[in-house]
Design a protein around this nucleic acid. Structure first.
Ligand code: SF4
Ligand code: SF4
Lengths: 141, 141
DNA sequence: TTATAACAGGATCAAAATGATCCTAAAGGT
DNA sequence: ACCTTTAGGATCATTTTGATCCTGTTATAA
């Protein structure tokens, strides 16, 4: 239950690679895809989302590619995951403040709300630079 | 992201109804389905899972139906959810203790492990009798 | 200004998961 | 025997996931 999809995995792997590059260094999508071991066309879509949300800056033409839009220490794992998977939402009814059925919100609602809050807190507390460093730079998602 | 499926929602609604019945009272699947507003044939499958896992006891024939196998206070929301959705597993690689790729486990792994632990803790702390009581018995998932 | 490099975005597609139903068998009561 | 009720397998439509392709747009450089 609650599994991250491939898209989410790829997103994390891809942006970690970017974060591991020297600051300001522009990377091609082909380069990132190869390094992160992700199908290139798929990763391109993912980075489109990143760009639209302002996590990375893209440029076209010769010399173009992707760079982080902010320091890796200012990009959270939550932003990356939500960029491609949508908001953290363990139960549909958490969208509206209240109930989809019946009179008002129920105790189940509160439990899922609690789950949502906890997960968001954990992912908010992790930044990409932390992930990018890893131990000795080995292993990055 | 991480949305509970219909099956999970139905499972919770169904077992809460059972928990709201007088202890020992046998309920028909048709009755539960109507009360919880769930397609009956679908709910039947869900309760089959419950029975196989020992959350409920089923009996066939006239006068048959379902009863909780234990007091509602001894059945956790985690058990109910996992019965139909499988284990809480935010990332595939949490299954093996280590990595699917590369050398060893990475920092991403640790974050998802933390998420898993938190969610499990929350759901373990909630029992069905708490949910069944609700406020005034109104609203039950 | 033309050629080339690279991302943007829409369309498409196969495979898998989800949500639901149906049918036959087995178990239990009258 | 006959009816009731769950068990379990098979089936089926829809949606989501994962992936690819094609065309357009932007930018650089010869
Ligand atoms: S690199 Fe990290 S996240 Fe990816 S499979 Fe290995 S431990 Fe899991
Ligand atoms: S009954 Fe509870 S869980 Fe169901 S939609 Fe309403 S608030 Fe959400």
């Amino acid at each position: 239950m609650m599994e991250l999809t491939r898209k989410g995995e790829y997103a994390i792997r891809g942006i970690i690679y970017l974060a591991q590059q020297p600051p300001g260094r522009v990377s091609l999508i082909s380069e990132i895809a190869a390094a992160a071991d992700v199908p290139q066309t798929f990763l391109a879509k993912i980075f489109q989302s990143f760009a639209k949300l302002g996590l990375v800056v893209s440029s076209r033409g010769t010399g173009g590619g992707f760079v982080l839009a902010r320091p890796a220490s200012a990009i959270t794992m939550r932003e990356v995951v939500e960029a491609v998977e949508g908001p953290i939402l363990p139960n549909r009814c958490l969208l509206g403040a209240s109930c989809e059925r019946g009179t008002g919100h129920c105790l189940v609602h509160d439990v899922w709300r609690q789950v949502q809050t906890e997960v968001v807190n954990i992912l908010d507390a992790v930044t990409i630079d932390t992930l990018a460093r890893g131990r000795d730079g080995r292993d990055a998602a």
